[in-house]
Amino acid sequence: MSDAMHDLTLTLNGQAHAIRVEARRTLADALREDCGLTGTHLGCEHGVCGACTVLMDGQPVRACLLFAVQAEGRAIRTVEGLAKGGALNPLQRAFAENHALQCGYCTPGFLMLGTAILETDPGISDEALVEALSSNLCRCTGYANIARAIRAAADAMSTEGAA
């Protein structure tokens, strides 16, 4: 259906990417296949597992439940945008230091969800943190270290902010 092709410009981690896709192409597939950002993973393609979580205008969303055409004009952030100049950011460091990943497949989704939490509610209560993290599935870690890492990152950032 060539007449159903759309020329779009996606803004990904601050950079413009011009792509040509069918309307049905999900944002997740567009990121991975058309823009080469394979850090966003697909675990279910029906919105349950959260592996494809990205930020759209600062809000965490499932990239498998959005069509690429719907993301035009929005600021999309993915896991590739976290490290600056190759240096891990505080949240990424906290994941490594707290052994918050094993196979690493769910990790980008948790990092983006964690980023949203740290940006909107850095003092989040333990109960609210568990509720927020219950949106994503991890099959390796048993989750405790993921929550610990996000808490550690929040502490590290508040210390850095205060210093």
Partner: peptide, 9 residues
């Protein structure tokens, strides 16, 4: 961990 955390897996 490095590549997995950067989305470079």
């Amino acid at each position: 961990d490095g590549p997995l955390l950067r989305g470079e897996g």
